[in-house]
């Protein structure tokens, strides 16, 4: 099952990419994917990373085919 993963700010810089398509197992939750990618890319300050699934801040959902998952560092607008 494929999901699109997007990285922003310092996370994109750390991962060396802004986007990738990942093959994930059926039934994987957003928080499991978060833990996996934080480990893969050694993303710093992991506790401050928020996930948005299909543009909604939420990690307690089961991922579905075609979902867009964004890894968001703390916001810095203004």
């Amino acid at each position: 099952m494929k999901v699109t993963v997007k990285y922003f700010g310092i996370i994109a810089e750390t991962a060396g990419k802004k986007e990738e398509i990942l093959d994930v197992t059926q039934g994987m939750s957003a928080s499991e994917l978060k833990a996996r990618q934080i480990k893969t890319y050694q993303i710093p300050e992991a506790e401050s990373v928020q996930l948005a699934v299909n543009r909604d801040l939420n990690t307690e959902v089961e991922l579905k085919e075609g979902d867009e998952v964004a890894f968001l560092p703390p916001f810095a607008g203004g």
């Binding site: 922003f8 948005a52 964004a70 968001l72 916001f75 810095a76 607008g77």
Partner: peptide, 11 residues
């Protein structure tokens, strides 16, 4: 609200 809720990043 903009500072707290909008996913904007500044280098």
């Amino acid at each position: 609200e903009i500072k707290a809720k909008v996913p904007i990043y500044g280098k």
